[in-house]
Computed example of a mutant assay.
Amino acid sequence: MPSSPVAFTAASPGGTKGSAAGAGSRPKLERAYLELRHPPADGGTGTPGPPLDTIEFQFNPKELTLAKSAKWERKTARGAKTAGPAEFTGPEPSKLTLEMFFDATGAQDSKVVTAVEKLFSCCVPTDRTHDKKAGTPPFVIFHWGGLTGFVGYISQVQAKYTLFTAGGLPIRAVCQVTLEELSAQLPGQNPTSGALAARRVHHVVTGDTLPLLAFREYGDPAAWRDIAEANGIDDPMRLRPGSTLLLPAAEELGT
């Protein structure tokens, strides 16, 4: 059976890896967020660079819209009265559209404006790539508890301010955000999977070490160097509980 157009992975039905809930207890509320990553140093679309920032949802989304399409071409033979059969020429990038709602009616401060400007900044090149004349926006990954989306970039942000202070400061906004998958299909990969290299995410818990994670993920503790490089880790002996690590695909190890 073919896989889903966009490959989301859920670590567990009740929350993230490492979270524990007793039998019959109420599931922990997980807050959705967008993880921003530096583009790869080589300017490609492979393993994302080190963490750049996060944009947290003030309220979890009510719905997620996924879209997947394909490229088809019809060739008509000379003298034929009808078009020939459609030929598949390749997949289009998957798209994820979601709504982000921000509200500051209580404090009536600039929190809403700051959040919207941060989303807009994802549609322009990062300072690092701009300085190198590469011009690449941040790589973005959607997270919601154990749910992890594809590696992509924000292709569109539409913000609608719906409430203002007496002085004209926006204190409520609804943003439509579209994430587009990066085109990096691996050899032998199911073209409908929507998966990319380095799309798995691990939430660090107390006791985690890079060699231990490498052994669990790849069966080879020596692969800790690949995890460290993918996450820009200088000191592999110090992992902060609660942080997230992007785990490279097995096909990328040693590349």
Rank of each mutant, 00 (worst) to 15 (best):
M1N: 04
P5T: 05
A7L: 11
A10D: 04
A11R: 13
S12K: 13
G14N: 02
T16Y: 09
S19F: 07
A20M: 12
G22W: 11
G24M: 00
S25Y: 02
S25F: 03
R26G: 05
L29T: 06
A32P: 05
L34E: 00
L34T: 04
R37Q: 09
R37H: 15
P39V: 09
P40T: 02
P40M: 04
A41H: 01
G43P: 13
G44K: 03
D53W: 05
I55H: 08
I55C: 07
E56R: 09
F57L: 05
F57A: 11
F57N: 03
F59N: 04
F59S: 06
K62I: 00
A67Q: 15
W72T: 07
E73D: 02
K75A: 09
T82N: 04
A83Y: 00
E87P: 01
E87M: 06
T89F: 04
G90N: 07
P91I: 06
P93G: 01
S94D: 07
S94R: 09
L96C: 10
L98Y: 10
E99D: 12
E99R: 14
A104W: 10
T105E: 15
D109P: 09
D109L: 07
S110Q: 11
V112D: 11
V113M: 07
A115T: 04
V116G: 14
V116T: 12
V116P: 14
V116K: 14
V116F: 13
L119W: 14
L119F: 15
F120I: 00
F120A: 00
C122E: 02
P125C: 12
R128W: 09
R128M: 06
T129H: 09
K133N: 13
A134T: 10
A134H: 11
G135L: 13
P137T: 11
P138L: 03
F139C: 04
V140A: 04
F142I: 05
G145Q: 01
G146M: 03
L147H: 12
G149F: 10
I154K: 10
Q156K: 15
Q158D: 15
A159Y: 03
A159N: 02
Y161H: 14
Y161Q: 03
Y161G: 05
A166Y: 09
G167A: 13
G168D: 00
G168V: 00
P170S: 06
P170G: 07
R172L: 10
R172D: 05
C175R: 09
Q176V: 05
T178I: 09
T178V: 14
E180R: 07
L182T: 08
P187F: 12
P187Q: 13
Q189H: 02
N190D: 02
N190P: 01
P191C: 03
P191M: 01
T192A: 04
G194K: 12
G194P: 13
G194N: 11
L196P: 05
R199P: 04
V201Q: 14
V201I: 15
H202T: 01
T206R: 10
D208K: 01
T209M: 00
P211V: 03
L212Q: 06
L213M: 00
F215T: 04
E217Y: 08
Y218C: 09
D220F: 09
A222N: 03
A223K: 15
A223P: 11
D226M: 08
I227C: 13
A228F: 08
A228K: 04
A230D: 02
A230V: 00
N231P: 13
N231I: 08
I233L: 12
D235N: 15
L239R: 14
R240A: 15
L245P: 07
A249C: 10
A249T: 08
A250C: 02
T255E: 14
